[in-house]
Design a binder for these strands. Structure first.
Lengths: 340, 340
DNA sequence: ACTGGCACTCGCTACTTACGAGTGCCAAGC
DNA sequence: GCTTGGCACTCGTAAGTAGCGAGTGCCAGT
């Protein structure tokens, strides 16, 4: 498959023009807007080859060409030049993130920032508990048979949950329980907690065993099984930009997918070390999102990764710009977390 | 304005048919589908009057009639028969809400339930802090200059926030601080807290005064100013039902409004004692939502109200059904909270 | 290998026509 | 005096037609 330099150049031009205008691009317009140094007829021949190879496509016989998912993929992998952030963007990021008081605050600001900068739907995963360690476990007696357990992770995540005890406990008992769980679990990675829990019960004094038993069940539920992961979402209104043309006619499936936390996690949470990842249309595993693209990156203090963030938009998307923004925001957030 | 019984009956029929079919309803169809006992011509005369009074409207000269906001209002106020919940709905509510472990859990389940039952966008406000009392304030030392303050309200709300202290404190100091704040603030209504805070600082020992000072600033910020109120949202995908016909062409403004927590609060949070409230189209204060209707109710244990919940949908909405559902869900949630 | 020329395709717009649902009005009837 | 059947009228929608033009593929010439 002979894709010489000019053909690649033509593909790049098609992608750029189509992204900018949202209209199928023809040979004549291409030659006019880019300095390709050849005639429309030549471009047409190149386009015919590109179409044969599946990189572009005609919506109807007598229309211009539109990139296919495969075309975007090639563009992203080999043709897109890195687009440095504008000064304004850098400033926006800093202004937005400075003054966050809280992990919650950081996450919310970040997700809104991302949505605003990319003009797309933004998703930010909270630092994953499975990649966090227990900093402290606090037990707050609410009544003699009720405890509020608060887990504070080194990533700043805080989870709390009410525990209904089978037997009443006294104040001193709570102190006991608190000391025990912190001794055993403090500093541990969340993912290492489950096997330790049984020991927790075994080693506690007989009188406290029932209490410790329910307590540890709840701990497991809360920390490992249930809201293990959380996400924040913003910018759904951006889906309506560009008419209903993107997303093959209906926002329905997209909105439905975005309602499911599980799906968002799958989308944004499966980050591999330090790479920015782009999923284009069909490459997406979720059926409802086959007409969308995702750009995601991992973030975390230093070079470790504690969570993912990214955006979702039409396949017809400004990839270079979006990738640059997502990457930059991920880095800023990582730095911010490192300061704690 | 002579709106005799038959005219009202005609209006009701128009609303019901239009809601069901989404199409302007004509005199002939009306007579066929409802037993009005009169001829189409008579109905036409009635419709002319109803139109003159502003209750209905013709999209175009030669089309049937469509209710106006005013028409829906009259319908809701005087014409709609209460529609009892189906057995299936009752069961759904119970099944959905049983087994909630947590306030967060309750709110999330509720909002999804509401969205599913009404097939509309659902909004649930967390129990308002301003209507809550402090049950307990926990201070967890993270380092010598850092505290995690956790506030547990009687409504189940839990708020936490990291505090950066100006001076290092020892473990005993934290115990002191904890005792003091709980003595002064425990059991107080959140709305009564601000005036008490100054006393808190004044009465603490000189050594702890700087720490107490920042602590109380943060308390004020967290409890009163900042996330004072929170909301959960679900069912945005339901906006796409019925084409883009509802909402005068674009989902844009709606989605934008739903992104703003402040707006959601205004929408759902301003509940007055025990009444279910319906806002139709223009009655809505938020410009972006002028083409939508809101049905909301307050909820809380017993007859007190701690928060609001409701749904948002097209003005062309099944009001009786929606009202019944919102009311029922509010009651169930209230009962659930009462059990704590 | 590139280019200009050319016939061809086909979606889009504009225009016309036909249809029919729905109306308002009026004169007749209960 | 309300109700009713009749009837002319309006007007949005659907279907059909024509012309335009962007864009193409192909071919012969350089």
């Amino acid at each position: 498959m002979g894709l010489d330099d000019r053909k690649l150049e033509v593909l790049r031009a098609i992608v750029e023009d189509y992204v900018a205008t949202q209209e199928p691009v023809g040979s004549k317009a291409l030659v006019e807007r880019h300095q390709l140094g050849v005639s429309p007829a030549t471009v047409r021949n190149d386009m015919a080859v590109l179409e044969e190879e599946g990189y572009i496509q005609q919506p109807h016989t007598s229309a211009g060409r539109v990139p296919t998912d495969r075309g975007y993929r090639l563009f992203v992998d080999r043709l897109s030049r890195v687009k440095p952030l504008s000064q304004a963007e850098r400033r926006a990021i800093e202004r937005f993130l400075v003054g966050a008081v809280d992990l919650d605050d950081v996450v919310h600001r970040t997700v809104r920032l991302l949505a605003q900068l990319t003009r797309q739907v933004a998703v930010v995963q909270y630092p994953s508990l499975s990649r966090s360690s227990v900093r402290h476990l606090e037990l707050v007696p609410i009544s003699t048979t009720r405890l509020m357990v608060v887990m504070i992770a080194d990533t700043g995540r805080v989870e709390q949950r009410l525990v209904e005890l089978p037997t009443p406990v006294r104040f001193d008992d709570v102190t006991d329980l608190r000391r025990t769980v912190n001794e055993k679990l403090g500093g541990r990675r969340l993912s290492d907690v489950p096997p330790l829990v049984q020991a927790l019960v075994d080693e506690s004094s007989p009188a406290l065993r029932p209490a410790m038993s329910t307590l540890s069940t709840v701990l497991l539920e809360t920390l490992v099984e249930r809201h293990e992961e959380r996400v924040a979402l913003a910018g759904t209104a951006n889906l309506t930009r560009g008419g209903v043309l993107d997303f093959q006619g209906s926002l329905r499936p997209i909105l439905e997918a975005l309602e499911e936390e599980v799906i968002l996690l799958k989308l944004i949470g499966e980050v591999e070390p330090s790479r920015t990842r782009v999923l284009i249309g069909d490459e997406n595993e979720i059926d409802n999102l086959r007409s969308a693209s995702v750009v995601r990156a991992g973030y975390g203090p230093g070079s470790t990764i504690v969570g993912g963030l990214g955006v979702l938009g039409p396949t017809r998307m400004d990839y270079p710009g979006t990738i640059a923004t997502v990457r930059a925001v991920a880095r800023y957030v990582g730095d911010l977390l490192a300061q704690n």
